[in-house]
Amino acid sequence: MFRESPIIRWRNYSDRYKLSGHKCTKCGANYFEKKGMCVCGNLIFSEMFFSGNGKIVSFTKIHSGPSVFEEQSPYCVAIIDLEEGARITAQIVDCKYDELKIGLGVEAVFRKLYKSGEKGIIHYGTKFRLKL
């Protein structure tokens, strides 16, 4: 149900579409999703945008994912360190599993995430591909 709600997803458009993040106004640490408190103890954040460039920290191949991702199976997922400092988990597209290596550079692309059934909303967002 959570994945199918157009409203809940709409609240995350800025994160999912544009990789908007949150910068600690005290120490400058960047977070992809807002934290209640920065590691430095500060509670105030300003909006920032990640460039979409990063490096693979770890990766895997999903053969049997959640039902909304079935059409895309099998697919690769990686933990990525973004250039500006935050760590993110995302799909890696347009490559085979064998092509992936820890440390490879990746860049953000805008893709379909999944569809809410035959009549529901098509959800879009950020995935990554190996840097061209």
Binding site: Q72, V93, D94, V109, F110, R111, K112, L113, Y124, K127
Partner: peptide, 13 residues
Amino acid sequence: PGKDEDTITISHA
């Protein structure tokens, strides 16, 4: 198109 590509994602790129 890739499985996750359509007119919207192509337009964006």
